[in-house]
Each structure stands twice: as structure tokens, then as C-alpha cells.
Design a protein around this nucleic acid. Sequence first.
DNA 1: TGAAGCATGTAACGTGTTACATGATTGG
DNA 2: CCAATCATGTAACACGTTACATGCTTCA
Lengths: 182, 182
Amino acid sequence: MHIKEWGNGVTEYILLGFLMQGNMTGYDMKQHMSMSTSYFVDASFGSIYPSLKRLVQKGFVELKETIENGKLKKIYSINEQGKEEFEKWLSAPILVSKTDISSALAKIFFFRYLPFDKAILLIERYIRDIEQYKKSLSELKPKIEKKADEFSLGTLHFGLDYYDFSIRWYKSYLKNLKQKIQ
Amino acid sequence: MHIKEWGNGVTEYILLGFLMQGNMTGYDMKQHMSMSTSYFVDASFGSIYPSLKRLVQKGFVELKETIENGKLKKIYSINEQGKEEFEKWLSAPILVSKTDISSALAKIFFFRYLPFDKAILLIERYIRDIEQYKKSLSELKPKIEKKADEFSLGTLHFGLDYYDFSIRWYKSYLKNLKQKIQ
DNA sequence: TGAAGCATGTAACGTGTTACATGATTGG
DNA sequence: CCAATCATGTAACACGTTACATGCTTCA
């Protein structure tokens, strides 16, 4: 048996996050996505419905079937266990992914459900982690440069500049957040 | 029967790209990755070996088994069909992914195998496509803002700023490339 | 009446990770 | 001699997409 830090099932956590606001159907959640998270996570129905089934099986979500206007509706709601799981996910460090922005954004998107100071700490740690990644890549740079051409060198610079951009962005974001509470 | 534009099997294309440089083993390719593409694509052996098997099955790659220092070695080489497939992939538009940087970088990384002017055109088109994405998100912005809090608003701004950063970055990169050939 | 939207879901397929499994050589 | 590196691979599992499949209501 092995612990899976987070399983990468970002979709499931997004669904839990939506249910924190109130009960709704799978269809509703898809609507929510396209109007709020679509620029970083936009799951299809073929992913949403199985995810919901799993969430029920895992005991994080409750299901009530109703008939409204002749249409079958499955109203989902989050229970205590689900809330705990969601908060556990939120409280865990934001993972730096070299290539995937969505897992970080997904978490921050729901940070209103975390105590403000905890959120701040996680973002601060995230920044430090990105800085670490940037440092590693910088150290790898000379090795890569030796056999790089115009184009592959470009991708390396993009990587470094992207880390810089992220660090700067999150620092400024953090500053903004902190000012708001004073 | 449906056409799959590119199948998203970026790993397979990376492997083909390495084989453009010369023949090597799966193990070699892993080494290559960690020393050149690891900051955007770094497949595990559990992905590399099956990918190579598939590439052979698809008829893009040839395999020669040798024994060197008592160790079994499988030397892979790319054939004409493989080169065609690789070039087809390179020549296809760079897809804008909202969340995944790696697919774009993977392609640009190998642009030396494309005629210079073709590469330039693809990057120009890519920039236009990002601009389109940014425009779409900007248009969605007011809708999202209506129900956004401090944090979810942050992720929206990150999205927009990331598009801006990318556009600016690629424009400057393009300028640099063009200067080099004059 | 017919299209769009509401509402659900499955099946095939692709592709990735981690853990497991094996075994040789090389260098300290 | 033992660890690291070279070298291969499989199996279980997770997760996602697309296409397919169904059927009701609402509105032009």
C-alpha cells in the first residue's frame, strides 16, 4: 500500500470545491466550470460523471435523485468527510509543475475556504519552490547550452523566463493580498 | 474513423526527434531527456519503452539488437516514414494549450529540423493564436468577475498575465531569430 | 416541428505514473 | 564486495478524451 500525495485528480477536487458552495447536478458543475475555471480546468462530461461516481464511492459526496419537470436529476452534496478531504488538499503544499499551470491555479482558486494566513503561507512556500526549480534549471543551463541550437536554446530561456515571471507575479499578488487585510 | 490531429503523444515525437540526431537505445533517450528536455518533458522508462514499441509497430522506427559488454542493447533508428511523421508533426500548427506549456516547447525544441522560414511562420501563427485565447478570456472576464473573490480573481489575472507574458516573449524571440539571419 | 438546451451516462482508446522484477558491468 | 550505473521491461492503476447513446422540455 502506498500513499499517493494527491493523486492528481484535480477534477475531483474542483467538483468538491463547487459543492462547497451548494448542492448541484453534474450538468451544473460543467456550467460552473465553463464560467469560472475553464481557462485552466475544463473537464468533459465523460470525465465529470465518472468523477462524481468515484466521489460517492469514496464517501465524500452524497447523492439525492429527484425528478424535476419530468427530467431525472441527481443532486450531489458534499458531506463532512468530503469537506475534510477538500481542506486537506487545499492545505497541502502547492506543487510546482514544470509544465502544467492548472494544478496550482486550481488550488488557489479555492483558497477562500482556507484561513487567510494559511493561504498566505502556502503561496509563500510556492514561491520559494519555484525559485528552487529556477535555480536547478539555471545550474543545468551550461550543460544544455553546450549542445543547443537557436531553437532549443529558446525553449530553455522560455523555461527560465517563465519561472521568473511566475515568481514576480506571485510576489506581487502576495503583496496585494497582504495590503487588503491591513 | 476519425482523424486525430496529433494524438498528444508528445513523448513519441520527442523520441523521434532524438533519433533524428542518430541511433540510440531507450536508456540513451532517457539520458538525453534529463539533459535537454527535462524542464518540460521528462518521461519515465515505463513510458519510454512502450512508446518505442509503438513506434516500431507503427513502422516509424527500426530496431537492431546487439550485445555489448555482455549487455543486451536495443539500438533504435528512425526510418523514412518516421522522418515524414516527425516532419508532419513539426509542420503542424503549434497548439495553444491553456495549461500545458510542454507541447509548444516540445515542438519548438526541434525546429532546427524545419526550414527557417517555416519555423518563423509557425511561431507567428502561434502568437496570433495566443492573442485569440487572451481575447476570449478577456471577454469572459466580466462574467467571471461577478462571482469572484480575492483568490479566484487572482487566478484569472494570472491567466491573462500569462498570455501577455507569452505573447511578449515569443515576439521578442521572433525578433531575435529574424535578426540572426540578416 | 425541429433545434437547442437540459440531463444522464458508457465504451473504446490512449497514455501516463509507480512499483516491481531482472541482471550485467564498473569503479571505489 | 557492494553500490552505482547500464539496460530492459511488465503490471496495476489512474485518468482523460471522443464518440456514441438516450430522452425530455422549451422556444422560435
